[in-house]
Write a protein that binds this DNA or RNA. Structure first.
Lengths: 232, 232
DNA sequence: GAATGATTCAAACGTTCGTTTTAATTGTAC
DNA sequence: GTACAATTAAAACGAACGTTTGAATCATTC
C-alpha cells in the first residue's frame, strides 16, 4: 500500500525540456517563467539552473535536442539522393521534398512532441531574441549550404539570387503553415480539415508551384525571355 | 541664444507610438519595457499610462493606427475591382495582388515606418500573446471575409478548403519574407539584392505560382482528374 | 494675473523575474 | 553503517517589471 511514486526521478532533465517546449509554444520565451516550467514539470525551481545553467541555456537545449536530429535526417536524405543520381543533377522537386518533407513528417508527429516543437521552430525563425537567432543560424549553416548548393546545380540557368529568394519564401510558407495553424485565430473555425497528415501534400504542391513559377521581370532590367520558368 | 527646445510637445502620443513600434520589432513585446520606450521617445515614464492606459493598450494602438489604414486600402481596391468587373468573376491574380500588393507597398516604404510596421505585423501573426491574437483576428475579420469570398467566386471549381489553405500559405510566405529578411540571420550575407521594391514582383510571382499549382491528391481519396490546376 | 484643466515630472508602489545559497536527501561503493 | 558525490529542497537575493501617486508645470480662459 506504499505510494508507488518514484522518489528519485533521473529523468528530471527531460521532464524540464518537455515542459519548457510546451510552455514556450504556448506563451513564448519571455512570457514563460522558470517557475511555470518547474511547476509543470513537477520539479524544484533550482533544478533548471542546476541541470542547464541558465534559462538561455535551457532554451538552446530545447532546440538542440530536436534540431540536430532533424537536420541529420535532412542531410542523410540529400546524401541518398545524390548517391542514387550518381553525379547527375537532381530534380528540384526531390531536393525540396528532402528538406521540407522531413520537417513536415516531424510536424505530423503529435505523439512525441514533434508537432509541438515544429510549431515552436516555425515561430522562432522570426524571433527577435538575438542569441536564439545566432544559435539557429549556426545549427542551420551546414544544411542550408548543402541544400542551396544542390538547388544551384539543379537549376544552373536560374540566377542564384532568385533561388535564394524562393527558398526563403518556401521556408516562410512552411513555418507559417505549421506555427500559425492553431496558434493564430485568424482562420478560426474556417478549417474543417486541419489534419497534419494532409498538410504535407497540400503544402508540397504549393511550394513546388511557387518554385516553378515564371521569374519576375523588372521594368528597370533589360527585358529578356519573358516569364521563363524557374524550375522544370 | 535661448534653447530652442520646445517645452510642450503635443506629439507625445505619436512619439511614444513610433518608439514602441521600432522597439517591438527589435526586441518583441515582452522584452520591450516601458522604460525603454519612454527613454527612446524622450518622454516621462508615466506618459504611456497617462495617454494609453496600459502597456497592452499601447500595443493595440501601435497596430490599430496602421492596420486600419492598410485594410481600408485593401477593401477599396477590391471594391474597385468588383465595380470594374460589373458582376463578372475576378481573376484570382487580381485578388491576390489587391491583398498582398497593398501590404508589400507599405512594406517598401522605409521613410514613414511602413517597413518597420510590416516587419512587426508579419511576426505577430504567430504571436503567442493571447490578446494580441484576439485583436488581430477582429481587425482582419471583415477583410478576410471579403477576399476569401471573392476567391471562392473566382474559383468555383476549387474546393473552398483548398483555397483557404493556399491563402494561408500565401500569408505565411509574405509574412516571413518581410519579417524574416533582416530579422533572421539564416541567410546572412547571402542576399546581394534585398531591395524592398523588388520584393513585390518576386513574391507576387511566387505566390501566384503556388496558387496555380496542381491540387494535391491523396491516396485515400478517389483519384479524380489528376493534377488539375487550382487557379487559371 | 488668477483660475482651471491638461499634461509632465520624480518618486515610490507591490510584484515577479532569473539566479544563488545553504541545507537536506538521495543512490552508490566501501 | 559510513563516507562521498550527485541531486533535490526551501528560502532568500537584488534587479527589473508595470503601474500609481501627488506635486509641479503647462496652455488657455476669464
Amino acid at each position: 500500500m506504499s505510494a508507488p511514486t518514484p522518489r528519485h526521478t533521473p529523468e528530471t532533465r527531460s521532464r524540464i525540456l518537455d515542459a519548457a517546449e510546451e510552455l514556450f509554444v504556448e506563451h513564448g520565451f519571455e512570457a514563460t517563467s522558470m517557475r511555470m516550467i518547474t511547476s509543470q514539470a513537477g520539479v524544484n525551481l533550482a533544478a533548471i539552473n542546476y541541470h542547464f545553467g541558465s534559462k538561455d541555456a535551457l532554451i538552446q537545449e530545447v532546440f538542440r535536442r530536436r534540431l540536430t536530429e532533424l537536420n541529420r535526417q535532412r542531410l542523410a536524405m540529400l546524401d541518398k539522393l545524390e548517391a542514387d543520381a550518381g553525379g547527375a543533377p537532381l530534380k528540384p522537386s526531390r531536393i525540396v521534398e528532402a528538406f521540407f518533407g522531413t520537417a513536415l513528417v516531424l510536424a505530423a508527429d503529435t505523439e512525441h512532441g514533434g508537432h509541438t516543437f515544429m510549431r515552436l521552430l516555425g515561430r522562432t525563425y522570426t524571433e527577435p531574441n538575438a542569441f536564439v537567432r545566432q544559435f539557429l543560424a549556426e545549427e542551420y549553416a551546414e544544411v542550408l549550404e548543402r541544400f542551396l548548393g544542390a538547388l544551384y546545380r539543379s537549376l544552373p540557368d536560374v540566377p542564384r539570387e532568385e533561388i535564394l529568394w524562393r527558398f526563403h519564401f518556401m521556408m516562410g510558407a512552411m513555418s507559417y503553415a505549421i506555427a500559425g495553424t492553431d496558434a493564430l485565430q485568424l482562420f478560426a473555425g474556417k478549417f474543417d480539415d486541419a489534419d497534419p497528415a494532409r498538410l504535407l501534400p497540400r503544402l508540397m504542391s504549393f511550394l513546388l508551384g511557387g518554385l516553378r513559377a515564371p521569374l519576375a521581370e523588372y521594368a528597370a532590367r533589360p527585358a529578356g525571355r519573358r516569364g521563363r520558368s524557374a524550375a522544370a
